[in-house]
Design a protein around this nucleic acid. Structure first.
Lengths: 66, 66
DNA sequence: TTCAAATGTAAAACAAACTTTACATATAGA
DNA sequence: TCTATATGTAAAGTTTGTTTTACATTTGAA
């Protein structure tokens, strides 16, 4: 799975730490998500999408590995 | 988090085992999701939404615990 | 009522998410 | 250049997702 997190953060002018705080996870979790180190839970995806006023599908994408 | 899985399965006339096979997880995982025993990964949510031609938000909902 | 299919559930094991701490590197502004 | 802020990364530990096996219960159709 891939994602748009870095772009969305840029649009909203948020640091990784800002985003982490807003959705209630550690900064390292955000960093790892952006670097595709792991797949977040659906709760996190929903919270992030909500924060950015987009759908989950606008931010997270299935790829050939999925 | 809550979900609509049971309804969507009914609409598409799929058993838990059918759905499990379609998205590549065990039947117990589907059952546990429906019973809100755990939160699936974003990959699973995306796959399920895609299968049902809906958005993740149409099927999975944040609740007061999130 | 009987039988098969579907669902619920549970325990053990393993994999993956996520946290905490800690440090290194990059970047930009004073 | 110096410093503060942001990002990358790593190891160890905890929690949670997910599988496998196995069995009990429900449901519906013959």
């Amino acid at each position: 799975m891939k994602n748009n997190l870095k772009v969305e953060r840029a649009i909203h002018n948020l640091t990784q730490a800002d985003l982490a705080e807003r959705i209630g996870v550690s900064r390292q979790s955000i960093n790892a998500m952006e670097k595709n180190k792991y797949v977040p839970s659906t709760v996190l995806a929903l919270k992030i999408a909500k924060l950015f006023n987009k759908s989950v599908e606008d931010i997270f994408f299935l790829d050939e590995n999925d």
